[in-house]
Nucleic acid binder design. Structure first.
Length: 640
RNA sequence: GCCGACAUAGCUCAGGGGUAGAGCAACUGAUUCGUAAUCAGUAGGUCCUCGGUUCAAUUCCGAGUGUCGGCACCA
């Protein structure tokens, strides 16, 4: 006699074991029709699952957030069936729901092409129209392995073999097709609906390991209804319009060319943005008690051997040699070993700690060709890097201080919030387990003290220490890791950094590696996409364009520009013989934040007509007032 | 690095085994105009590179390079 408790607190009792379908029907025909699956005592279940004991039950309908994941999961099954019916012999592997959709990895000698999509989608629609019920069966483990091996499904067989003994081997049927699956599923293939679309094909290693065979992955998106699907597709278009590579070209900020792949040619306007940002960061660091340094680009391999980088990252370093000297130098891929050299130059006292050493360090890394991406992932970049040499006791306060500084910078740069991930020891690492215990604990304590909440990112720490990763979310919901803070006991040891303590003895300092922007290149890419190129006035490479309406007003326009420049603003005159409409359009498309229109009237009255990017409103101001207002607005936030 | 796609004017793109095409941008001229495209004209090309097939290759084939989408990588 199971008593079923519903979300509203009401209880229904049934004669014997009862399925979700029956319960839903007992509540009402509307729910019977809408229920796709259920949550029994907190766990998602098929509607057809029999409940024999008392339980609390909530039904999942299409309106639930949970339905989205089920639709995607079920759609993945439908996709797999469609592909196997079209190309028998294709092996199935896994097909999980992901953000915005799902994918399915297939093994097949001939990869799919986007031209196959139409046929696959059509077959999927047939399968969905047939609305075959999902039927769960539990199989004997060995029989299941034998079954899939018989079919030549070696990947599925491997998956079953690797399932823990305790786990039941559940199989889901949909009509004549079946697949190994943990479930749960909705009632039938028809519940997938029609709001799905195959998006792209891609290669992916079996089980994410590059030593394994390459599978063909089909990415797809799926939603509750067509409206959601359209909204998603619109969002993708928006992302494309914001693409920093496109905006970088449109705004003439930078370019990349074949002779220097992975390195950026910064054009005047892009470089202005870059220097505005470095100037800002330099002020922030100075306020934060950092000392700026500059260290060599080319450093002998012996230092990299000592630091451990040669062993681990040699293949990713640019190596330089000269003919008449028997030396091997490397373009520095990072700054820390060099900073340690400055630290150990001469005796250090405990009184100097914490010693905060900053460098806008230009680094080069031979990134894999497939990793390169616009200015976000490059081979030559500059970090806002710094190392804090300190004592164990100083880790926590320094972490708190750093997080405060980072928050302020992100806020100033237009990012409302950020997330923190705690990445602990990776499989391949330097240093003893004891020192890792110590470092991880120290970092956790520091977070507690600084009030930093984080999620775990297991095994993703640096090879020398655990790290905090500071992740920004841009305007369209994408995540970017920018800031970082890493606790390092290894490098000071390896490079023999020490200071004289209060007790007159030598001690090892701890090193905190930290960055806020990460690399200027990447961060500028994020900024471009965040603002879609429409920068706040203080960051905009061209802040004001003064556009004349008639030639008679041209001298006045030039005068206005001169006055703006004298006030420290980036201003340009547009006195071309073009209609004002054309000028407005051009400069708006070029994302100039402020256009000052001057005609005869303004010239006579020493005024300007101010127009903001994105608006059509105009404001007629006296020249001096306009310059004062714009000058104030263009002041970097930390100087206001 | 791996899988796949792509590479034609400054940009966006069309085309196709035999003199290379459009729109926008550029340049020249006319126009002096009040808040998102004035009109007319001119010029612009190693069709990514190298090799092969062919009477003939920008087009077909192969290799390389680069870019794009993923995967792997990211000190």
């Amino acid at each position: 006699m199971p008593a079923i408790t519903l979300p509203d607190g009401s209880v229904r009792t049934f004669e014997g074991p009862v399925t979700g379908t029956t319960i839903a029907a007992s509540i009402g025909p509307g729910l019977a029709k809408a229920a796709l699956a259920m949550i029994v005592d907190g766990a998602e279940r098929d509607l057809s699952t029999e409940i024999a004991q008392d339980a609390s039950v909530r039904f999942i309908t299409r309106k639930d957030e949970a339905a989205l994941e089920m639709i995607r999961h079920d759609a993945a099954h439908v996709l797999a069936e469609a592909v196997q019916s079209l190309w028998p012999g294709t092996q199935v592997t896994i097909g999980p729901p992901i953000k915005d959709g799902f994918y399915y990895d297939f093994f097949r000698n001939e990869p799919f092409t986007p031209e196959d999509f139409e046929a696959i989608e059509a077959r999927m629609r047939e399968i969905i129209a047939a609305n075959a019920p999902f039927e769960r069966e539990v199989w004997d483990r060995n029989e299941a392995i034998a079954y899939f091996e018989d079919k030549g499904e070696r990947f599925k067989a491997e998956l079953i073999r690797d399932l823990p003994e305790s786990e039941a081997i559940s199989i889901y049927r949909q009509g004549a097709w079946l697949d190994l699956c943990r479930g749960p599923h909705m009632r039938g293939t028809g519940d997938v609906g029609s709001a799905f679309k195959l998006m792209k094909v891609a290669g992916a290693y079996w089980r994410g390991d590059h030593r394994n065979p390459m599978l063909t992955r089909i990415y797809a998106t799926a939603w509750r209804d067509g409206k959601e699907l359209d909204a998603y597709l619109t969002r993708l278009e928006e992302a494309e319009r914001r693409d920093h590579r496109r905006i970088g070209r449109e705004m003439d900020l930078f370019h990349i060319q074949e002779e220097a792949t992975g390195s950026i040619f910064w054009h005047p306007k892009g470089w202005r943005l870059y220097t505005t940002l470095t100037d800002y960061m330099r002020r922030a660091q100075t306020r934060g008690g950092y000392q700026e340094v500059r260290t060599p680009q080319l450093v002998d391999r012996s230092l990299w051997e000592a630091s451990g980088h040669w062993d681990k990252y040699r293949e990713h370093m640019f190596i330089a040699t000269v003919e008449d000297e028997d030396k091997t130098l490397a373009l520095k891929p990072m700054n820390c070993p060099c900073h340690v050299q400055i630290f150990r130059h001469g005796l250090r006292s405990y009184r100097e700690l914490p010693l905060r050493m900053a460098e806008f360090g230009a680094c080069h890394r031979y990134e894999p060709s497939g990793a390169l991406h616009g200015i976000m992932r490059v081979r030559g970049f500059t970090q806002d890097d710094a190392h804090i040499f300190c004592t164990d006791d100083q880790i926590a306060p320094e972490t708190a201080k750093f997080v405060a500084m980072l928050s302020e910078v992100y806020t100033d740069l237009g990012f409302e919030s950020f997330r923190v991930k705690f990445a602990d020891r990776p499989e391949q690492r330097a240093g003893s387990d004891e020192s890792w215990d110590k470092a991880e604990q120290a970092l956790k304590d520091a977070c507690a003290l600084a009030g930093v909440e984080y999620e775990y990112n297991p095994g993703e720490g640096a090879f020398y220490g655990p790290k905090l990763e500071f992740v920004l979310t841009d305007a369209i919901g994408r995540d970017w890791q920018c800031g970082t803070l890493q606790v390092d006991y290894v490098l000071p040891e390896r490079l023999d950094a020490s200071y004289i303590g209060e007790d007159s003895a030598r001690h090892r300092p701890v090193m905190l590696h930290r960055a806020i922007l990460g690399s200027f290149e990447r961060f500028i890419g994020i900024l471009i996409e965040q603002f879609a190129g429409k920068f706040p006035l203080w960051l905009a490479p061209v802040q004001v364009v003064v556009a004349s309406i008639v030639t008679d007003a041209a001298p006045y326009a030039e005068e206005v520009v001169a006055a703006l420049k004298a006030a420290g603003l980036q201003a340009e005159a547009d006195v071309r013989n073009e209609k004002i409409n054309a000028k407005i359009r051009e400069h708006s498309l070029a994302r100039v934040p402020v256009i000052l229109v001057v005609g005869r009237r303004e010239a006579e009255n020493r005024q300007v007509a101010l127009r903001r990017l994105g608006g059509a409103a105009q404001e007629v101001l006296d020249l001096d007032a306009a310059i004062a207002a714009l000058g104030a607005e263009a002041t970097p936030p930390d100087l206001r």
